[in-house]
């Protein structure tokens, strides 16, 4: 009897291969059950953007291999100890494209629950997944693997959350649309930012983007007049010189006493005069600042890898001890 994982991920297979074997969310349970009928004693299918994996307990793993109709060079296969370690690393985000990301834990939990509901799991995988989830919780609480965002948009949102008490009642103004400014506005919206105003020299693009994120488009000429009500300004215009200067900003700040203002300058060349950041209650970050923080956070996560693996080893040893102790009775149970 083998505990096994067979799968492919963003490192072993390009997206065109991954998408061929991806399983839609609604079929996770059914496919796990089909694999059980096809010869696995227990099965859980995990399918995310970056990976498709089958965790199984099997006498023969051929059924699991047959599931992947892709060239073998794209596949990996881990058994027993390596399988347990792999699952723990996946749920802890150590095997993710963005190291330490937390979304994968929720996806694996959903995949496991779907398989369990479909009756595809048994004592071995139930215990394995519970152990892996416990390891993930342990690793996240005891290390900094998930701390600090690693994308410019999320770094900006993290900073906003350290400036404002909550984002719900905040007004965000996006001056000039572009890939990063839109991603940042979306990240702010996803964390609850209240009103989003969008203005751009290309008014059509402003209207389109505002509609996409449930914001409101304003005319490009009107944006300075909005300063008394805005809390966060994202600038990304193509202007060759600063459009927000200390001289212009100082009188505008008088209309908003003791209220912080967060300026996120994504533009190159910069749209906000650096000296604006020295004004009281004004916090200014440009693209370099945000990229540097994101890079520092990535480096900090990498430094946590050894500590994470050490914590995982503790869970691994405990699981393997249980597995070894129960193997004879489990083999008896699953004997054909």
């Amino acid at each position: 009897m083998n505990l096994v994982v067979i799968g492919l991920n963003h490192r072993t297979a390009p997206v065109e291969v991954r998408e061929r074997v991806a399983v839609p969310r609604g079929r996770w349970g059914a496919v796990s059950a089909e694999l059980r009928k096809a010869g696995l004693y227990e099965a859980v299918v995990v399918s995310t953007c970056n990976r498709v994996e089958v965790y199984g307990v099997a006498g023969e793993v051929a059924a699991a291999r047959r599931f992947f109709s892709v060239p073998p060079q794209h596949l990996y296969e881990w058994r027993d100890q390596d399988c347990v370690r792999h699952l723990c690393e996946v749920v802890c985000g150590l095997d993710s494209m963005v190291l330490g990301e937390t979304e994968v834990l929720g996806q694996v939990k959903q995949a496991y629950e779907a398989a369990q509901t479909a009756g595809a799991t048994g004592p071995v995988l139930n215990r394995l997944f519970q152990k892996a989830f416990a390891a993930a919780k342990h690793v996240r609480s005891r290390t900094a693997i998930a701390r600090g965002s690693t994308s410019v948009g999320n770094v900006a949102v993290d900073l906003a959350e350290k400036i404002f008490r909550n984002l719900a009642a905040r007004t965000v103004m996006v001056v000039g649309t572009g890939e990063i400014s839109e991603a940042t506005a979306r990240a702010l919206r996803s964390r609850g930012a209240g009103t989003i105003l969008v203005c751009s020299r290309a008014q059509g693009r402003a209207v389109e983007f505002a509609a996409q994120i449930g914001g409101r488009a304003i005319s490009y000429e009107d944006w300075p007049a909005q300063f008394p009500i805005v809390d966060i300004v994202i600038t990304a215009t193509g202007a060759p010189h600063p459009v927000i200067t200390t001289e212009k900003l100082r009188p505008l700040l008088r209309h908003r006493p003791a209220r912080p203002l967060f300026l996120i300058d994504i533009a190159v060349p910069r749209n906000v005069e650096p000296s604006c950041g020295e004004l009281e209650d004004v916090f200014l970050y440009d693209l370099d600042d945000l990229q540097q923080i994101a890079q520092d956070n990535r480096a900090a996560r990498e430094r946590e890898l050894d500590a994470c693996r050490e914590l995982i080893d503790g869970h691994l040893v405990r699981y393997l001890r249980w597995f070894a102790a129960h193997r004879p009775s489990l083999e008896q149970r699953y004997q054909p």
């Binding site: 959350e161 008490r165 916090f283 200014l284 600042d289 923080i293």
Partner: peptide, 17 residues
């Protein structure tokens, strides 16, 4: 926050507001 190179303790303290 003003330094633009926040230390990791930034995450530990509440928002300035």
């Amino acid at each position: 926050l003003k330094s633009r190179r926040p230390h990791r303790t930034l995450a530990l303290l509440p928002a300035v507001e």
